[in-house]
Every structure is written in C-alpha cells, then in structure tokens.
Amino acid sequence: MCNDMPGTGRSIAARVTPLSAYDQLHQNIRTQQAALPPRLRQIAEYITQHPNDVALGTVKSVASAANVQPSTVIRFARLFGFNGFSEMQSVFQNHLRSRVTPYQERVSALHRVDGQPVAALDVLEGFHRAATESLEALHHLVDPERLQKAVACLARGRVIYILGLRRSMAVVRYLAYLFTKLEIPHRVVGAEAGMEEESIFGAGPEDAALVISFSEYAPLTVHLFNQLEKRRVPVVSLTDNAISPIIPASGLWFEIVETDFQGFRANAATMVMIMTLAAAIAERRK
C-alpha cells in the first residue's frame, strides 16, 4: 500500500476562498460520516455521490434511492442544521444552478456587447491566459514530497489502472498513449462502454490506480474509485478540492485548478501533471 499523511498540505493553505454552503455541507458530512449510524451513513454516501439527483428529486425519491425511509432523510437534514429536507435541497439546487451552463450559452458569451462575434485572436488570447493561470496554480499547489511519494506509489504497481470519465477522458487517453510508448503496464478503466466494473475485476493491492475527476464528479467515477479502495488498490487522485469524493485513504491526491474562459475549461494543468507522472514513473521503473 502507498501511505502518506492524510491531510491537505500546502494546497489548502494556499486557498483562502471561503467555502460555499454546498462545500461546507460536504465537508461537514465527510468529517462526521464515519460516526453516523448505518442508515444516516447510507444517506451521506448517496447525497455526496448524486448531488444532482438530490437537487432535482423529492424526499421520497432520495429516500428510495438511498434505501431508507423518508423520515430518515429528514432526520439527516436536521442533524446537519437544516429545518428539513427542502432547506437542505435548496443548497444542492443553488449549486446546480451555479455550475451548469449549456454549451450554447457558453458560445453566446463569446460575442461582444454589440452582438458581434469576438475576434478569433481574442478567443485565443482568452484560452492562453486561462491555461497560463492554470499552470501557475499547479506549480504553486504541488507539494514536492507528495509528488515523489505518488510517483513511487504508481511505479510500484504491477498494472496501473487509469480512471477518468467525461472531461477527464481526453487526459486518460493521452496518459494511456504515453504509458504505451514508455512500456508501462496499464489498463484504462471504461475503455469499453458498459464494461467499467469488469475492468477492475483483476485489480489488487499489488497494482496501483490513478483516478481523475472534477466537479461535477461523474457518479460512475466515484463508484469505481470506491471499488478500487475496497480492493485495497493504492490510489493517487487528481481532483479540485479537499471535499472531493475521490480523495484516497492514503492521502495521495493533488489539487488541480483549471481556470475557465467564458465557461470553457481546458485540461492544461491536468495534462502537464499526467505528463510529469508518466515520465517520472518510467524513470523510476528503470
């Protein structure tokens, strides 16, 4: 197993932005989850992994999905300082409204005040600036000691499982390409749609895994991450904050902050991070 001191290290010290109500709720849940009674723990696991379903559902639908009684959901909400389910749900609804912007609206944002399209060079400048800020943040946030431990952890793996869906999928594909060229044994989890669960059947403590996911976290990624942890596979995670549902028990995770331009987020910092890991792992495996 790969061990590191759990905690947030330099990455959190560098971020002084106050937590939103949504982030604060998730942090409170993560802090208290282990001490909750079994039924309340079921709800905690469900709502942290399915925030959109909580935002759009009813107390009955949430209770059914979490396999508890509606009264238990209400008791859970009150335990965390809400008057009832509706008040807790409003936190998830506000978060959903703030995060979800249709791509057509993002394209519309690339128009000037007079309605004319922004010049292509200005778009390039915007994405260049966002990528530069992302890379500067990466350089500032990465703890060198933790990076060395993560490289050692992954390099020891018999097979390195790579997991990342949605926006992270492009990064995973490129990392698989690098691993192939560097002759590092690996397996992409979810290379075939519908076969994600089967992809990790052979994973065990002698292997390693790199998991990549950012808010809004893909529910399937969270589920497979939990399965890897249950199989005692050493995991290194790339994610965006300390309350992410894919932070491994080992504490080996890295905060990746990708600056957006008009709602579009690239993978600039994430790409540089996986290239760093691939090259360092190859050198270590020699």
Rank of each mutant, 00 (worst) to 15 (best):
H128F: 02
A21P: 10
L138K: 02
E133Y: 06
D260A: 11
T58K: 01
L25D: 00
R30K: 12
P205S: 10
I247D: 00
Q89G: 00
R265L: 04
A279T: 13
P51F: 04
Q24H: 09
A13N: 09
R167P: 05
R284I: 07
L277I: 10
L252Q: 01
P18E: 12
I12C: 10
S199A: 05
V73R: 07
L178K: 11
V211N: 08
R285F: 04
A209Y: 02
F92Q: 01
F85R: 14
L40W: 06
L228Q: 12
R129A: 14
I243D: 12
L19K: 05
A109R: 09
A152Y: 13
D240F: 12
S168R: 05
R41P: 12
I12Q: 04
L141R: 09
A21S: 02
R231W: 06
K230E: 05
P144W: 08
D260W: 06
Q89F: 00
N83G: 10
Y177D: 06
I243L: 08
A77I: 06
T101R: 13
V59S: 09
R41N: 03
A137M: 11
N226I: 11
A155V: 06
S244I: 05
D122Y: 11
L175A: 04
W253S: 02
V189P: 07
F82I: 14
P117C: 08
L277P: 01
H128N: 12
Q49Y: 02
E105T: 14
R15E: 01
N83E: 14
Q93E: 04
I162M: 06
Q89N: 00
G263W: 08
I184M: 08
Q69I: 07
R187K: 04
Q27Y: 15
E197C: 10
E258R: 01
Q89M: 00
E216D: 10
T239M: 15
I184N: 03
A269K: 02
M1T: 07
L40S: 03
V159A: 14
N267G: 09
R99W: 07
A137F: 15
T101I: 07
M195L: 11
A249F: 14
S213T: 05
I212L: 06
G190M: 04
G115F: 01
G204F: 15
M5F: 03
H95T: 12
H95V: 00
K230V: 03
S199K: 11
G263K: 08
A208H: 11
R99T: 06
F127M: 01
N52T: 11
G204T: 15
L121P: 03
L147I: 09
F179V: 15
Q24A: 07
V272H: 13
E145C: 15
Q42E: 13
S20N: 03
D53R: 12
I256T: 06
I200Y: 07
A155Q: 09
H95F: 02
V172Q: 01
H186E: 03
V100H: 08
L178V: 15
M273D: 02
K149E: 14
E216F: 03
